[in-house]
Simulated assay, not measured.
Amino acid sequence: MTQRLRIATWNINSLRLRLPLLPRLIGALDPDVICLQETKVPDELFPVDAPAELGFPHVAYAGMKGYNGVAILSRIPLQRQTTAPDWCAKGDSRHVSVLLDMKSGPVELHDFYVPAGGDIPDREENPKYGHKLDFVGEATSWFAGRKDLARTVLVGDLNIAPLEHDVWNHKQLLDVVSHTPPETSGLLAWQNTRFHDAVRHFVPEDQKLYTWWSYRNRDWRASNRGRRLDHVWVTPDLKDGLASHTILKDARDWPQTSDHVPVCVELEV
């Protein structure tokens, strides 16, 4: 028996600040699971009652004060997983994973917030860039070693726009962090550990596709200088179940909103 599964992912850029926007996301996308990044709230201050009040009683989160942080809010019962390493041994709350209790069997779900990497694309001059590359490399190695990887969905703000049409100007951004060749090749190597790009499944690679527009763009729609930093991947055994996708572009105009917009994929599992 198959079951609908709608997973939304959003870099919320402060959960406590933007918690009032979640009902709008739910109304627009009707997700079964919401994966958040950059929640910026330590675990002891997580608003534990809020998800249930929104109809999402099952929650897993990892947070810290002031920055980073990830959370999964679910209508579907879940079991938290603790098998992944402490990425780069930094304890910086960039990943949470769960098993979703689906009728056809468990679905493994990973929610990632990859380091942004600073502004200078040089490992020696900018340790943040080196951390980003190391994080992606470590994740690639870990998933490559997962011989049992199946019925798995990976989402999140991966902070890399890997393809030419994932950015507004490929040539101009080749030396800009988020689209440099070491980052894009690294992310594609991670994806190639047995994942399928669920959004590009619906949108051909020769079409422009963005999920992020800088706060610096006063009229972001007119300039449309976007990047696709937010991703949904599925293992090949889930590929045939992909039914639809939504990039909630209108969310970029919500009051006090994030510079990222929610991405949602629906599949039958």
Score class of each variant (00 low, 15 high):
Asn11Ser: 05
Ile12Lys: 09
Asn13Trp: 08
Ser14Glu: 03
Arg16Gln: 13
Arg16His: 05
Leu19Gly: 07
Pro20Met: 11
Leu21Lys: 10
Leu21Ser: 13
Leu21Gly: 05
Pro23Thr: 06
Leu25Glu: 07
Gly27Ser: 15
Leu29Glu: 10
Pro31Arg: 04
Asp32Ser: 07
Cys35Met: 06
Cys35Ser: 10
Gln37Val: 02
Gln37Tyr: 01
Glu38Asn: 03
Glu38Tyr: 00
Thr39Trp: 04
Thr39Gln: 01
Lys40Ser: 02
Lys40Gln: 10
Lys40Tyr: 00
Lys40Asn: 04
Asp43Tyr: 07
Pro47Arg: 09
Val48Thr: 14
Pro51Lys: 02
Pro51Cys: 06
Pro51Asp: 05
Glu53Phe: 00
Leu54Thr: 04
Gly55Phe: 11
Phe56His: 03
Val59His: 13
Val59Ser: 09
Ala60Thr: 09
Tyr61Glu: 01
Ala62Phe: 04
Ala62Ile: 14
Ala62Cys: 11
Gly63Phe: 00
Met64Phe: 05
Met64Cys: 10
Met64Pro: 02
Met64Lys: 12
Lys65Met: 02
Gly66Phe: 07
Tyr67Lys: 07
Tyr67Asp: 01
Asn68Tyr: 08
Gly69Asp: 02
Val70Ser: 08
Ile72Asp: 11
Ile72Thr: 14
Ile72Trp: 08
Ile72Ala: 02
Leu73Pro: 05
Leu73Gly: 03
Arg75Thr: 12
Pro77Gly: 01
Pro77Asp: 06
Pro77Ser: 06
Leu78Phe: 07
Gln79Cys: 12
Gln79Leu: 11
Arg80Phe: 03
Arg80Lys: 14
Thr82Asn: 15
Thr82Leu: 13
Thr83Lys: 08
Ala84Asn: 03
Pro85Ser: 14
Cys88Met: 13
Arg94Ala: 00
His95Ser: 14
Ser97Glu: 15
Leu100Arg: 08
Leu100Trp: 04
Leu100Lys: 05
Met102Gln: 14
Met102Trp: 04
Met102Asn: 04
Pro106Thr: 12
Val107Ala: 07
Glu108Ile: 04
Asp111Asn: 15
Asp111Thr: 05
Phe112Pro: 06
Val114Ser: 04
Ala116Ile: 01
Gly118Arg: 05
Asp119Gly: 07
Asp119Glu: 15
Asp119Arg: 15
Pro121Met: 11
Pro121Ala: 13
Asp122Gln: 10
Glu124Leu: 12
Glu124Asn: 08
Glu125Arg: 05
Glu125Ser: 08
Pro127Leu: 00
Pro127Gly: 04
Tyr129Asn: 01
Tyr129Cys: 02
Gly130Glu: 11
His131Trp: 03
His131Ile: 00
His131Cys: 00
His131Val: 01
His131Leu: 13
Leu133Pro: 08
Asp134Trp: 00
Phe135Ile: 01
Phe135Asp: 02
Phe135Pro: 06
Gly137Leu: 09
Glu138Arg: 07
Ser141Leu: 13
